[in-house]
Design a protein around this nucleic acid. Structure first.
Lengths: 164, 164
DNA sequence: GGGTAATCGTTGGACATCCCCACGAATCTC
DNA sequence: GAGATTCGTGGGGATGTCCAACGATTACCC
């Protein structure tokens, strides 16, 4: 496993698993991105809209914590999504500092279409694999993913940085 | 495989393979990045230096094509690498438009250390897996990676975008 | 040969992402 | 009630990716 003697530096880099996953991830990213582009959403907008849907009427600070995204960027995403009529910001009567963010019915419909589109993009990503291989891949990736920090004392959830 | 009826939008997104690979890739990326940071290199610099080493005296335009990176960005990387004494830009006598870029012996030594460091970072990334699982993962990822475009007519090589 | 097209390295700038800081308003703590 | 904290929102900077254009040089083609 040490670098072979006719030293091929680039070849070596590109044989590393870290490089391989990176390439596959980039392809998956762009596939999903162009799949949902027709709905007028980019990946972060999609993730935010999904989180708002899932966590009901939710304050922006909660979204920041759950998605581990920047508060400033969230404002921009919400502005866009609200402008498109996919969600609404209302003042929270129980705490007038907060906004209660809720998905509209139009937003819900968009979300359902995006779920279908994302599914299909993943279908294409995994098309070279048969059912058993797909299952094996998911199992291996899951194993790698849910052990991010060996010191599991106060591990940050760090949920959805790259969104899809 | 269609979205389940108690519709969990975020959960659904985060169950997609595209999301899983993305998270694992992000972790691999940062592991390798901090591994080689001690050598004063970031991921793109490392990839460029490796490519220059592998392709001997090479013109910058060739590096642009082989690595699929932007020409402007390459200039910056080369400036940094040349400033650190890891490579040299010389005018190509046979085509005075081109630069002949070559790795110095110092650059070669750095590259060997980085190969070792990258290896170790990948060791840590794959630590939850045993030998058989690692082999299986690499095989699956390779299968996904080398079929980027179904229309293999004039497929772009598109070599090393995210470098490691 | 000579004029046009293409390529070389380089620069400028658009755009998105991520990080830290600061502000006015509202709420919580004691 | 007074001070600390949280809320949403903006400013500004550091990167990373990508496209457009330029002067210099070379290749093409009639």
């Amino acid at each position: 496993m040490t670098p072979p003697e006719p030293f091929r530096a680039l070849e070596h880099i590109q044989s590393l698993p870290s490089w391989l996953v990176g390439r596959v991830a980039a392809r998956g990213r762009s596939l999903v991105a162009e799949a949902i582009a027709g709905e007028g959403l980019k990946l972060p907008h999609h993730a935010v809209l999904a989180a708002v849907f899932e966590y009901g009427p939710v304050a922006q600070a909660d979204l920041v914590r759950r998605l581990s995204i920047d508060a400033k960027d969230l404002v921009g995403f919400l502005n866009h999504l609200e402008g498109a009529g996919l969600l609404v910001r209302e003042p929270d009567p129980r705490d007038r500092r907060k906004n209660a963010v809720t998905v509209t019915t139009k937003g819900t419909r968009t979300l359902r279409r995006c779920a279908e589109l994302g599914e299909r993009a993943n279908e294409e990503l995994l098309s070279p694999l048969d059912a058993a291989e797909r299952q094996a891949l998911i199992a291996l990736l899951t194993k790698l993913h849910q052990v991010p920090s060996p010191d599991a004392d106060h591990a940050q959830p760090d949920a959805a940085r790259q969104e899809d």
